[in-house]
């Protein structure tokens, strides 16, 4: 199962600098957002969209072709 991943702000530093936060990942079938966070060694306190829709449920199973965006969850003004 192949998904497109986009990481923002400091989270993208989990990927090589030349990737600029974007990568294509091959995950096992049935992988969840929780699995993805563990794979990337990311904290659970993040904001995630799947195919540009907010997804707060980390048990959500991903499908091939999904676009997953992950943002830091912070306040600020």
């Amino acid at each position: 199962m192949v998904i497109t991943l986009k990481l923002y702000s400091t989270l993208r530093e989990k990927l090589p600098p030349e990737a600029r936060g974007q990568a294509t990942l091959d995950l096992h079938d049935g992988a969840t957002l929780d699995d993805l966070l563990a794979h990337l060694d990311l904290p659970k306190r993040v904001v995630i969209s799947v195919n540009d829709e907010h997804e707060p449920d980390l048990t959500r199973r991903l499908n091939s072709g999904d676009l997953v965006r992950i943002f830091s969850a912070v306040g600020g003004g």
Binding site: Y8, S9, T10, I48, R69, V74, G75, G76
Partner: peptide
């Protein structure tokens, strides 16, 4: 993240 990318780093999270 705020220190490196500025407060506008929150744009995507607010959008989501």
């Amino acid at each position: 993240g705020l220190s490196k990318y500025g407060t506008a780093e929150t744009t995507g999270a607010n959008q989501t």
